[in-house]
């Protein structure tokens, strides 16, 4: 082992990581379920447009409001568009909005929180008060306001969703960094000549990742709901684009007249996506926690 080359070590590390992933999944069948479900949702987002049997925007007056059949699995809507194709295609848009919003919120929020938790003082005060201010608003209403004011576009939905998620990451990162600020290994790293910023970035922050990953996963589900919610009330994504929120909104008008499939299937897709992200949260924690590695 004494003269092992870097490539051998990297290979070793990858094998070890895979082995750990296999162990974590085998130990918890629920996580395995969540991972499979997540892969399925992700697969729909990536391959959906290729797999869709019909053009999601193609109207066909003759086929309007048909119940689910072998030809149209999820039925058709008031303009004769295939609901199955639309649900499938919408996955990409919804996941893109959710992922980009959560990534932005995670990067900005955890950086703010980590700095506040580590350095304290005025940076802590500033970050905490900003978070309090954002949290003081009803978050969905705040997001509505931002999208309405900044303009009705997909990118603004992303920004609005990111902004209302920042306080969660900031507070969590602040708490997680704060409890580790005076840990023995941090002092040890200080003695080893690490600068304060390096201490935070290399020694403390990676240790806060396990709980943060859970938050990310839960947040993804929440972000999808938020984006769909905004579209449902007519902000952000506009018809005729396929998006779960709009489809539920459009379908809702037809439930009274018995055409339940238009709202049910996009709603079910939404539920499935949120469900898989929430389940994944616990599994992710097991995967990223080095304490569980053997």
């Amino acid at each position: 082992m004494s003269q092992s080359s870097p490539s051998v070590q990297t290979g070793l590390r990858i094998t070890r990581a895979l082995g750990h992933a296999r162990y974590a999944l085998a130990a918890n069948p629920v996580t395995l379920c969540a991972v499979l479900l997540f892969m399925f949702v992700l697969g729909c987002a990536i391959f959906g447009p290729m797999l869709a049997p019909y053009d999601p925007l193609q109207t066909n007056g003759a086929m309007a409001l048909k119940a689910p059949s072998w030809q149209h699995w999820f039925g058709t809507d008031q303009l004769g568009r295939d609901v199955f194709s639309r649900v499938l295609v919408a996955a990409r848009l919804d996941l893109t909005i959710a992922f980009s919003a959560v990534i932005i919120a995670f990067i900005i929020g955890s950086t703010m929180g980590a700095v506040a938790g580590f350095f304290g003082g005025w940076s802590d005060l500033a970050v905490s008060r900003v978070c309090d201010t954002i949290m003081a608003f009803p978050l969905f209403v705040l997001a509505m306001g931002i999208v309405a004011a900044a303009g009705n576009s997909v990118i603004n939905i992303v920004y609005a969703t990111a902004l209302i998620n920042i306080p969660f990451y900031a507070r969590m990162a602040r708490a997680e960094v704060n409890v580790r600020r005076n840990a023995g290994f941090v002092h040890a790293a200080r003695l080893a000549g690490n600068s304060e910023w390096r201490l935070l970035a290399v020694h403390i922050f990676p240790n806060t990742l396990p709980p943060m990953m859970v938050q990310v996963s839960l947040n993804l589900g929440w972000a999808i709901l938020n984006a769909a919610g905004l579209s449902f009330i007519g902000l952000g994504v506009r018809p005729p684009d396929a998006e779960w929120g709009i489809m539920v909104a459009e379908g809702a008008n037809f439930i009274v007249s018995g055409e339940w499939w238009m709202a049910l299937f996009p709603g079910a897709a939404l539920m499935l996506a949120v469900f898989s992200f929430n389940l994944l949260g616990d599994g992710l924690r097991d995967l990223v926690d080095p304490q569980k590695r053997t």
Binding site: A183, G184, F185, H187, A188, A189, H203, P206, N207, P290, Q291
Partner: peptide, 12 residues
């Protein structure tokens, strides 16, 4: 350090 567990970074 006094506590060998606390003084080692769990991710290193």
């Amino acid at each position: 350090f006094q506590d060998p567990t606390d003084s080692l970074n769990p991710r290193f």
